[in-house]
Simulated scan of single mutants.
Amino acid sequence: MPLRQEALETRLRQASSRHDFQEFFEVLLQSFKMSFGAIVPKTTGCFSPRATPIATAGSASGIDLLDKHRKELSEWISSSGTINEPAHWNFDEYDGSLSVSLEAIGICSGLTYADGGRRYVVLLGGQHSTLVRSDFNEICVILSRAMNCIDRLGLALPSGVALSPRETEVLGWISEGKSSAEAGMIVGLSGHTITAYLNNAMRKLDCVTRPQVVAKALRLKLIE
């Protein structure tokens, strides 16, 4: 294992807070000479233009541009097919206002990483005309570990957001395959009330389907 990768993975294993993870992300960018980066939750099918980033680092101007062009970036990533697999990209191949804006501050290429399209999208940008294969592979391995760390620390859950005891209970029964009506009979509530609690949990966790919210709650260890 390369020393750089070993050092970064050690940081991830030792991380115990959002602050620790943020420090790891900043060191990652410095180690691979990237100008800016962002990790954003991914909704079903595409990069979410509404989601709050889990971590950002590097050039403030680059991060501001990402926020300004979020909808355009979401559409570009989805249409380019890079939403479900790691990809190195070059904005010379993309004709749009985002490309012009990034090139104006010296950013011409970068990397998009999605862990099988399941959880998060990582965007890294820099001045590389190309990224050597060994560096690309190394970054992808590290980012895979980073996504596991996000789940372990519960960083995808927005600060200050927590499920109520009843929402947690309802999610627990839904995770066991119960319908709203069946869960309602167990806890002594109507099926409509169960659905309302479930919808609250889905909104808090930025999910749109029952399987998605159950999977996310399990990853974040909100239910067992």
Results as ranks from 00 to 15, higher is better:
85 E>L: 00
87 A>T: 10
87 A>R: 10
87 A>N: 11
87 A>H: 12
87 A>L: 06
87 A>E: 06
88 H>V: 07
90 N>Y: 11
91 F>H: 11
92 D>R: 15
93 E>F: 01
94 Y>P: 10
94 Y>C: 10
97 S>M: 07
98 L>I: 14
98 L>K: 11
101 S>H: 09
101 S>Y: 04
102 L>G: 11
105 I>E: 02
106 G>V: 08
108 C>K: 15
109 S>W: 13
111 L>D: 08
117 G>F: 06
117 G>E: 02
120 Y>H: 15
120 Y>M: 11
122 V>R: 04
123 L>T: 00
123 L>R: 04
124 L>Y: 12
125 G>A: 01
127 Q>K: 13
128 H>E: 12
129 S>Q: 15
131 L>Y: 11
132 V>F: 15
132 V>E: 15
133 R>L: 10
133 R>F: 08
134 S>T: 14
135 D>Q: 13
137 N>L: 09
138 E>M: 11
139 I>Q: 05
139 I>L: 05
141 V>Q: 07
141 V>A: 01
141 V>W: 06
145 R>N: 01
148 N>T: 02
151 D>I: 02
152 R>A: 08
152 R>H: 04
156 A>D: 12
157 L>V: 05
158 P>W: 02
158 P>V: 04
158 P>A: 06
159 S>V: 05
159 S>H: 13
161 V>Y: 08
165 P>I: 11
165 P>T: 14
167 E>P: 05
167 E>L: 10
168 T>G: 09
169 E>P: 01
170 V>P: 02
171 L>Q: 03
171 L>R: 08
173 W>P: 01
174 I>R: 07
177 G>Q: 06
178 K>W: 09
180 S>E: 08
181 A>L: 05
182 E>A: 02
183 A>D: 14
183 A>G: 13
184 G>W: 07
187 V>M: 14
193 T>C: 10
193 T>P: 08
199 N>H: 12
